[in-house]
Design a protein around this nucleic acid. Sequence first.
DNA 1: CGTATTCTTGAGCGACTTCAAGTATGGTGG
DNA 2: CCACCATACTTGAAGTCGCTCAAGAATACG
Lengths: 214, 214
Amino acid sequence: MKAASDASFPGHGSLLEIAGITGVVMPIERNAEIFGQGEPAEYIYKITSGAVRTYRLLCDGRRQIDAFYLAGDMFGLELSDMHSYSCEAVTGAKIVFFQRSAILAAAQRDGEVARQLWELTARHLRRSQDHTLLLVKSSQERVASFLLEMARRLRETSTVELPMPRQDIADYLGLTIETVSRTLTQFEEQSTIEFLAARRIALLNPTLLKQLNS
Amino acid sequence: MKAASDASFPGHGSLLEIAGITGVVMPIERNAEIFGQGEPAEYIYKITSGAVRTYRLLCDGRRQIDAFYLAGDMFGLELSDMHSYSCEAVTGAKIVFFQRSAILAAAQRDGEVARQLWELTARHLRRSQDHTLLLVKSSQERVASFLLEMARRLRETSTVELPMPRQDIADYLGLTIETVSRTLTQFEEQSTIEFLAARRIALLNPTLLKQLNS
DNA sequence: CGTATTCTTGAGCGACTTCAAGTATGGTGG
DNA sequence: CCACCATACTTGAAGTCGCTCAAGAATACG
């Protein structure tokens, strides 16, 4: 039996088609916590609509957003059975919950499932490494990379509809909210982008953005 | 048959013991390239002595060191069959080369091997996320974290023998070599550390360093 | 239409960088 | 064993990018 979530993403070659495990679709409201750092990892998640953020806090309250997950993405899989980071909905979202234990059991039986689990983790590793590389760049380069990444992942070429507030972007890029705002304004002044709304941005000169991306 | 490398790391529960695959020990000299970004990934590596660095270059020459690997560590495993980063020896090193294809074939046959491949990638992901968190901190916090990480991984408590030059530390921490040097000097002035040699550092006040680590 | 939230903008400051010497360190050949 | 050289490391002074603090403008929502 196919998982309910997979019907809407036929081309995605999901783990769950193969494992034959059914998940439960949960509607999650904006800013609701999906799981918290230190909690037992009971589920693995697939997001069918909306967006979520995973993050960690330093003792003094600084927040580092590790990743954003968008429609079609899976997240929440870790080696440990405790979550090492927290997860919240950025927007209202529909998320499919799958029993972690069932997935792991399926992986033990079926080598193809095991391979897809590994691929998922490997993809996350790759993304984490790209994120690390981002954090050594200038503020302009970081914001440019972010816009391009979002456009690519949302499958939007000329216009991006950002689901997250500026503060989330800042905490993802290791900048302050003011610097993010100023950098975007700067891009607008030089006609690299145009604001259709605060979170709806037209990429007028993607070539220039790509140059900044290195 | 056991891999040659495993005899010296009996407690390490190595993948290679289980897979029954034999690797070839290669002596690598300081600063020699082990593999380069974009090259086909033929091998998976286990380091038995010495240290290596993996890194990526931006177009203008800035270098981000992703990770250091020390005796007992495995590295070079990626999802893609092309390397997405480069790898060099930090010091003279002994490294065991294992055929990637043999490992992957073993993983397909044996679920336990597959699981250990996944664990390896998951551990690297965890480390990459910790690294990301490091890069949002102040220079003092970054250097303190680095010293503690190295002391822990080298199993040295009161004294650390750093295998890498300051430039490598700087490129790992996203700082300049001057800032790394100044921060270490500052730690010495406040008697948090003591230089026995430029790369041999006594941790006089690990508690203070841990506070900076958050 | 009013209120809360989000976003932008400005001015001043500070942390880290850049540029430029100067000082150890370690390996090599005499 | 020492003199020499290349490399690695440290230190100083000036500059800059992004941060902090503070307010104002736009937006969303009841």
